[in-house]
Amino acid sequence: MNTVAEDTVVLEVKGLTTHFHLDEGVLKAVDGVDLRLKKGRTLGIVGESGCGKSVTSQALLRIVPKPGRIQGEIWLRRSKGDKQGEVVDIVKLPDKKKEIREIRGGEIAMIFQEPMKAFSPIHTVGDQIMEAILLHRTEDRKEAYRLAVDTLVEVGMSNPEQRMNEYPHQLSGGMRQRAMIAMAVSCQPAILIADEPTTALDVTVQAQVLDLIDGLKQSTGTSVVFITHDLGVIAEISDEVAVMYLGKVVEYTDVDTLFHGAIHPYTKALLASIPSVSRRERKTRLDAIEGRVPVPMNLPQGCGFYSRCPKAQDGVCNLADIPLVEVRKGHSVRCLLVDA
């Protein structure tokens, strides 16, 4: 797979877990996730709120809030610095040391859901973008300023020079998200993690932001991990998709197969719950998934979807943890009731 540049795997996650040891027990937010991100491709992670997709993205940068503990392997192919080309395990890097900080922002950058909260309210937008540039690209403040303005132009910000001196509360929601994206891409990272970047935006602005991220990906060859609960966004932007439920990947496939050949009952249920304009039987009600996502603490053995699954079989699904099985090349499913 190393022969063709396009197929180079830049990030590989194996058996990633993130557990929160609380007074009440162990909360398994991420419980064994395997992912593979190829150069220049977009991996979509989709799931309901509380399925662990955001924690997964934070775990990739090791910025999970306390008392979260990360285990497993996160192999990153370094794209910059002395160790360029080497493959390192982010989980094993020493905490609070230089190498992990070089990776954060420099090689893997993140776009957050709510730009209003993600920016410090008392520092100018320029200051916050330049901070990243000064850390990863140049130590010269003038140069950094120029690079920051360039990036703002790149993300389509009007009056970039003026925006540099403005505070987050002075920008509109869409502008803030553009600034956020500028901050993330300002250091030309090899991997861009977008954690629900469009959720807090208007639909029209959503489309612009999606276009922007897609355009940046095309022009720079950045790989993108795109996290969302919106299947429509997934259809638009992803190459491959991981469907998450209760901290586990339940189905992993390319985007076409997801929409036309999904196998896992949960994925099917998710797809059935999308409202559609072209839906023929307009009279029928939308298929909602029964119940709600349980809290991943003290869970019973077996399939996590057991309590809500329409096909669940007592004595089959609730006995032991279900393995993720590759049913076809590039299509894995975590369900016993599927013929391999």
Binding site: L22, E24, G25, L27, G50, V295, M297, N298
Partner: peptide, 8 residues
Amino acid sequence: SRTWLRLD
């Protein structure tokens, strides 16, 4: 358990 509440 009541922990459910505290989290959600």
